[in-house]
């Protein structure tokens, strides 16, 4: 693929970012990363008991995949928690990339956009390259850019819901307003058709986890999403036709047989 995706200091061929959680086994995760041809995977930090090697073996698997890591601040509920978690992640994963999540609602896992902007400002000033998980709100997007973010990641629907795009108008408006900012749809996609749909809108990439990891066959689903993302991107570049309310014959009407009214 000749067309590249630029995210901060990285230039990528793949427009599919993949989460690493909730796979049936580490082996299936490794195969799914390969099948998705992803170049960026998300990871997190969690409490671990002394003497456990679980985290280390997972980290080894990710390193062997060759993918770049995007650590998250999943589960953080305040800007302070998110900033501290990001600082810890930078040391462990040796990257200044951070997927910034500040959760504001237990039921929808909707981001607390006020805490998000605050944390984004602090982290950007500390040299982090912030990937904020946000709603599709135009004003929040503007504030995040002011805070130093150079990539935005609006949700399609609540995390893990698999609903697809909840607010098509909102995602369209965001794309139209920030046409030169890399936009990644993060969260809520359930099927490859959802991924293709947002790529057709002109989104630069998608970030998935549950839709792949909880599929009946995660490896096959990873491949299906990779194809959908590529198809959606190609369709966007090819400029889809404008939908119409009424039919328009595709075969020329002129010269139609049995047309007694023709001159």
């Amino acid at each position: 693929m000749a067309e590249k995706l630029a995210l901060y200091d990285a230039t990528l061929d793949s427009r599919l970012l993949l989460g690493t959680a909730r796979y049936p086994s580490p082996a299936i995760l490794a195969q799914a990363i390969r099948a998705a041809q992803t170049q960026v995977v998300t990871v997190s930090l969690r409490r671990e008991a002394g003497g456990s090697r679980a985290g280390e073996s997972f980290w080894e698997l990710v390193r062997e995949s060759g993918a770049r890591v995007l650590p998250n601040t999943a589960g953080c509920r305040t800007a302070k928690e998110a900033v501290t978690t990001a600082q810890m992640a930078r040391e462990v994963f040796a990257t200044d990339w951070i997927k910034l999540e500040v959760i504001g609602d237990e039921d929808t896992l909707q981001p607390d956009v006020f805490g998000l902007v605050e944390a984004a400002r602090t982290l950007s000033a500390e040299g982090f390259r912030v990937f904020p998980y946000m709603t599709e709100d135009l004003v929040v997007a503007e504030k995040l850019l002011e805070a130093g973010c150079r990539v935005l990641m609006p949700w399609a629907a609540p995390i893990g819901s698999g609903r697809g795009v909840n607010n098509l108008y909102g995602l369209r408006a965001l794309r139209a307003r920030f046409h030169d900012v890399p936009l990644i749809v993060d969260a809520g996609l359930g099927a490859p058709s959802h991924a293709a749909a947002v790529m057709e809108l002109g989104y630069d990439a998608v970030l998935l986890n549950t839709a792949v990891s909880r599929a009946g066959d995660p490896v096959a689903m990873a491949r299906a999403f990779a194809l959908a993302v590529e198809a959606g991107r190609a369709a966007f570049l090819a400029k889809p036709m404008t939908p119409r309310d009424l039919a328009q014959p595709s075969t020329p009407v002129l010269g139609r047989a049995f047309d007694e009214g023709a001159a």
């Binding site: 998300t42 671990e48 650590p71």
Partner: peptide, 10 residues
């Protein structure tokens, strides 16, 4: 004190 290790994440 928090002691955190690498873990799968989305």
């Amino acid at each position: 004190v928090e002691i955190l290790a690498p873990k799968q994440g989305g």
